[in-house]
Design a protein around this nucleic acid. Structure first.
Lengths: 184, 184
DNA sequence: GGGGTACCCTAACGCTGTTAGGGTGCCGCT
DNA sequence: AGCGGCACCCTAACAGCGTTAGGGTACCCC
């Protein structure tokens, strides 16, 4: 059982000081969300001025890209394990996807609310996170995309409080799950 | 055939000057997106200083809520007509949903990227936009929510360029459509 | 002793939403 | 004729944002 990022391709590409900054930024993001993630707040948590952050990271977009890359790495880990350990891979994937979003709502938001800064991401992480889904649909691209759209829609509509707060979404997930399973 | 908002509940609640400001804001939003929608830009297009806008609208959130309310009104119109005119209501709804998002991508974003400012919306518009979907699923809430999640996921992932730019999404929509239709 | 590098600083620029306080012109009432 | 109120706009300012320019200090190695 692995716990915590022992060897992250994203972190290993950064200098130690930059890793420290990304770590602090991640904590701030998890606690207070993307709106609170300002260079001045990060700097003050690290113990330096905002301007000094630029000694270690090119700009804010690069910092966000590092956080997003870390998110993809965690997703790849979670999703691969979920699919491998289950005989109903699509259901296992749905559960894992939901759990990731619920445990890291702010990170999930950061990863999905805008077009990806692909040129700044750690190479390969986006594809690695998508692999489990392609496995679960046996390479059916349309099936994979449609199911992903459903899962993302469910998660982001819930995070944005678009469903009634009292709504029990378990049967809704079930509905989508059987719908896509029966339409192989 | 109606064209343009002849009588909008949202606009009728505003003073003429406020209506003018919302109209200009809508044009700016459609042309340049939510990031460009600043009080100073809106003011300069109206011909007054940003500070003077606060004479007519309480704050920026109120202005955004007006734009969102207008979006819901347009959706209700489109969706109602689509469902009424078709014998495959779910497919008609999917097409109408897609078209709305493609014709007003910036407005669609504004309407979905954050929790709704419900206390500032025109009362009833959110429910009015949802009605056609509930009709199309014959009141099945789980079905309605699951399908909405799929549709929103498809739209927003495409707007955020998460699918490959060359991807043909027509069969993906078809996949989701048949999946949800066959699982009545 | 000198060069390089790792690291941090202050000051500033132009942008953001927003408030305080002051002004002008017009319309209707006494 | 004067006065209240309203509709409307102004400047100045505040605290925040990302970012750059330019300067400084300490260390390590040749």
């Amino acid at each position: 059982m692995r716990h915590g990022p022992i060897a992250s391709a994203t972190l290993s590409r950064l200098t130690p000081r930059a890793q420290e900054i990304v770590r602090v930024a991640r904590e701030l993001l998890d606690r207070e969300g993307p709106e609170a993630l300002s260079m001045r707040r990060i700097g003050s948590l690290v113990g330096i001025r905002a301007a000094s952050l630029y000694e270690h990271l090119r700009d804010k977009q690069t910092l966000e890209a590092a956080l997003i890359s870390l998110g993809f790495e965690e997703q790849a880990d979670l999703f691969d394990n979920a699919v491998a350990a289950s005989d109903d891979p699509l259901a296992a994937l749905a559960t894992a996807y939901r759990q990731f979003a619920h445990k890291q709502p702010h990170l999930y938001r950061l990863m999905t609310e805008r077009p990806l800064p692909r040129d700044r991401l750690t190479p390969g992480v986006e594809a690695a996170a998508a692999k489990a889904l392609l496995d679960a649909t046996h390479g059916d691209l349309d099936q994979a995309r449609a199911f992903w759209a459903f899962a993302h829609g469910m998660v982001i509509l819930e995070l944005n409080q678009r469903f009634p707060p009292t709504a029990n979404l378990d049967p809704t997930w079930q509905k989508g799950l059987t719908a896509f399973r029966d339409t192989q």
